[in-house]
Simulated scan of single mutants.
Amino acid sequence: MADVTFKGNPVTLVGQEVKVGDSAPNFTVLANDLSEVTLDSSKGQIRLISVVPSLDTGVCDAQTRRFNEEAANLGNVKVLTISMDLPFAQKRWCGANGIENVQTLSDHRDASFGKAYGVLMEELRLLARSIFVVDSNDKVTYVEYVSEGTNHPNYEAAIEAVKQAK
């Protein structure tokens, strides 16, 4: 598993580490209207999955805003931001911040995504900051487990990976 810290403290990631070349694991999360969303909900599209601990923190806010801006120029790409925030909080945050190009999804109910992608921080029951690019054939083409949860991901590498995906 990836070595990850949060505010300098080591955390235990629950689940299987996902690697480039793997078939993307399925998951079930909740949309802002409480409907279930799975990987298959965007089948046939390239997916950029941006994982954040909580939208209400500085780095997570900046990460989601950045991918919201980038999404407008990426064409047939579904940009998902997944966190443990409640769907109601995600909807409020998006409305207050003009986020329209990213779909925010909540893993709070079952931690299905967190376990499937190996990003559930056991000690905090939050998701570790990470990025996954899944191509239209459900293959993982890019993975970044950010080593320190309060650091930014490599935005440029993730965007380039999306552009290279088919």
Rank of each mutant, 00 (worst) to 15 (best):
A71P: 09
A89H: 15
D110N: 14
A71S: 06
G118M: 03
A111E: 10
N101K: 13
D85N: 15
L74T: 04
K115R: 10
F67W: 06
N73I: 07
F113E: 01
T81E: 15
T104F: 12
E100Y: 05
N73Y: 10
A72Q: 10
V119E: 08
R66P: 00
L105A: 02
V77G: 07
P87Q: 04
A96V: 11
F67C: 04
Q103W: 09
L105H: 02
V102S: 11
L86Y: 09
R66M: 03
I82N: 08
E70F: 06
I82H: 15
G95H: 10
R92S: 08
K91Y: 04
N97Y: 03
G75Y: 00
G114K: 06
P87V: 00
E100C: 08
R92G: 09
E122Y: 09
S112F: 05
N97V: 07
A72D: 09
A72H: 09
I99G: 07
L105V: 14
W93C: 09
A89N: 14
L80R: 07
N76F: 05
L80C: 01
L120N: 12
V119P: 01
S112V: 08
V102I: 05
A111W: 13
T104K: 12
I99Y: 08
H108Q: 13
N101R: 12
D107R: 02
S83Y: 01
E123H: 03
E70K: 03
F113I: 01
N97F: 00
G98H: 05
V102E: 02
G95R: 09
E69G: 09
M121E: 13
K91H: 12
D107A: 01
D110S: 11
E123T: 13
V79K: 05
R66Q: 06
V77L: 04
W93L: 12
G75P: 07
A72K: 11
G118R: 03
A89W: 12
L120I: 05
S106N: 06
L105I: 08
T104V: 10
L86M: 13
N68D: 10
G75D: 05
Q103P: 05
R92L: 10
S112Q: 02
I82W: 01
G98Y: 14
S112A: 08
I82A: 04
G114R: 00
V79H: 04
E100P: 15
F67E: 00
N101L: 00
D107S: 04
N101Y: 14
L74N: 05
L80D: 03
L86N: 14
